[in-house]
Amino acid sequence: MDAYLSLWETYGGQMLSTFWTNLQLTFWAAIASFLLGTLLALMRISPVPSLRWAGAAYVNIFRNTPLTIILTFGVLVLFGVFRVTLASDFNLNFFRIAIIGLTIYHAAFFCEAIRSGVNTVPLGQAEAARAIGLSFLPAARIVILPQAFRGAIAPIGNVLIALIKNSTVATAGSVAEISGTMKVMMEFRPDVGIPIFLTVAVFFVIVVLPVGMLTTYLSKKLAVAR
C-alpha cells in the first residue's frame, strides 16, 4: 500500500494529465469521425452509384485495418516522410495527427452505426419525402437522418465507447497518453503492477459506464414511435 501511495505521489499528476489527453483525443475524434461517418452514410444511401461505391470502399478498407497500423503510419509516414505539420509544437503535432488517425478509423464504424439506424426507417418515409418534392439531400436531412440517428443511438454509443478505449492506441502515434504512463509505472514498480492496472481500469470505467448508461437511456427515450 505504501509503495502504491508513494508511486501515486510521483506519477499521480502525470496519470491525470495523460488521461486528460485521452479524453481530449476522444472528444475531437468523436466530433470529426461522427461528421465524416454521417457523410459516408449519406454516400452509401445516395442515388449516385459512384458515391455508394466510394463510401463502401472507404468503410471496407478502414474498418478492416488495425488502428495501430493507421496511427503508426501517421507518425512514421505522414510525419516521418512527408513532414505533415499541423502544429509547430512537436507534441501538439503528434496529438493532431493521432486525432486524424482515430477519426479516419472510427468514421467507418460511425458510418455503419448510422446506416443501421437508416435501416430502422421504413422505406415509405423516403418515398413520402420524395413524393412531396424533396430531393435526396433535403429528404435525408429533414426526414431520414433525424429518424436514423434516433434509431442508432445504441450502436453510436458503442462506437463512442470503443473510441474512448481506442484512444490508448495513440501511444503508437507517439502521443503521451494514459497507457504509456501505465507502462512506465509498471516497468518502474512491477511489484505494484496490479494496483496500477486497476487504477487505470477505474479511470476508464468511470468515463465509459455513464456513456453506456446514457446511450441506453436515450435510445429508449428518443425511439421514434411508429
Binding site: 421504413p122 415509405g124 418515409q125 418515398e127 413520402a128 419525402a129 413524393a131 426526414v143 433525424p146 429518424q147 434516433r150 421514434v224 414511435a225 411508429r226
Partner: peptide, 14 residues
C-alpha cells in the same frame, strides 16, 4: 405537382 397517398400512410413519424 403530383400528390400521393400511400396504403401505409407514411406520415413522417418524428
Amino acid at each position: 405537382d403530383v400528390g400521393m397517398v400511400f396504403q401505409s400512410f407514411n406520415l413522417f413519424a418524428h
